[in-house]
C-alpha cells in the first residue's frame, strides 16, 4: 500500500483526473484504509472552492467604475494627456 505522503503527492493529479488507472486504484485503496487521508483530500478540495467563492466576490465599486469611465472618455478625446 502507498503511504500517506505518497498519497499527498498524488492528490493534485487525482483531483485533476490526470492519474492513470493503476495509480488511481492504489490511491483509492489507500483511502479505504485511511480515513484521515479522505478528510485531507476533501478539505484540500474545499479550500479551493471556498477561497474562490470568497475572492470572486470582488466587484468594481460604482465610484471606481464611474471614475474609470471618465478617465477613458477623456483619454479618447485627448489621447496621451493623463
Amino acid at each position: 500500500m502507498i503511504c500517506c505522503k505518497e498519497c499527498l503527492d498524488l492528490l493534485y493529479d487525482y483531483i485533476e483526473g490526470s492519474l492513470d488507472q493503476e495509480t488511481t486504484d492504489s490511491l483509492e485503496e489507500h483511502f479505504q484504509e485511511c480515513p484521515p487521508c479522505i478528510s485531507f483530500m476533501k478539505t484540500y478540495k474545499s479550500t479551493t472552492t471556498i477561497c474562490r467563492d470568497t475572492l470572486n466576490q470582488v466587484d468594481v465599486p460604482d465610484a471606481v467604475r464611474e471614475a474609470l469611465l471618465k478617465v477613458l472618455k477623456e483619454n479618447k478625446e485627448h489621447p496621451g494627456e493623463n
Binding site: C3, C34, C37, S39, S46, I50, T54
Partner: peptide
C-alpha cells in the same frame, strides 16, 4: 514510514453556514 501524524478533521461539509460571514471572509483573505 510516511503516514499521517496529525489528527485530520473533515470540515469540508460544515463550511456552508460559515462561508459568507464576515469573520470567515476575513480569515480567508
Amino acid at each position: 514510514a510516511g503516514f499521517q501524524q496529525e489528527k485530520i478533521q473533515d470540515w469540508s461539509e460544515n463550511t456552508e453556514s460559515l462561508l459568507f460571514t464576515n469573520e470567515t471572509r476575513d480569515v480567508i483573505n
